[in-house]
């Protein structure tokens, strides 16, 4: 009986650790998936780049319970694409006609995001990581058309 008192807690702790890690991976996978969904909404022209973080939070659905509300942060940065390079935007300075021609010729744009979210620890996991974990990801996509032509592609 005494022996069992020693063994059972150790085994329980290990079983709990396995379960906790499974939950962590589930949360991380769900977070990656939600980021992908939000990027596809952006690519379809139905999301403003500044509303990316809110969309990711919404797309998390029932898995929001794993994360700290309001902790999601999406930092938009330009992509390596030519469309995101500054020289193309400088053409707008040449006047409204050039800007209009550009809209008809190079009318795609892109966005890249660094997204972070705070995963708050589940009970046993908290012993290892009392402050929780910050999950990070990076993703980028180009969209066409931008701005919308004939009402298609606008947010």
């Amino acid at each position: 009986m005494i022996e069992m008192l020693i063994v059972i807690p150790i085994l329980c702790m290990m079983a709990a650790g396995v379960a906790q890690f499974a939950i962590l991976f589930q949360a991380q996978s769900s977070f990656e998936h939600a980021c992908g969904l939000a990027a596809r909404y952006y690519a379809a022209g139905e999301l403003d780049p500044n509303g990316f973080a809110e969309e990711v939070w919404d797309d998390l659905g029932s898995d929001q319970k794993y994360f700290t509300p309001g902790s999601i942060l999406a930092v938009p940065i330009p992509t390596q694409s030519i469309a995101s390079s500054g020289w193309l935007d400088r053409l707008n300075l040449l006047g409204p006609l050039v800007s209009k021609i550009k809209q008809f010729t190079v009318n795609y744009t892109g966005q890249k995001w660094f997204v972070t979210i705070h995963y708050h620890s589940a009970p046993f996991f908290g012993l290892l990581f009392p402050g929780g974990l910050v999950l990070k990801t990076q993703l980028a996509v180009l969209k066409y058309p931008d701005p919308p032509v004939n009402g298609v592609g606008g947010p």
């Binding site: 991976f25 990027a39 690519a43 980028a140 066409y144």
Partner: peptide, 26 residues
């Protein structure tokens, strides 16, 4: 998690290729 990331990254890269292609069609 890597598989999820790889699938998402490839999807977004393909969509981006499609966006530039669509611009070319215009």
């Amino acid at each position: 998690t890597a598989k999820e990331k790889a699938s998402r990254a490839t999807d977004l890269t393909a969509l981006s290729a499609g966006a530039v292609y669509a611009n070319g069609m215009q």
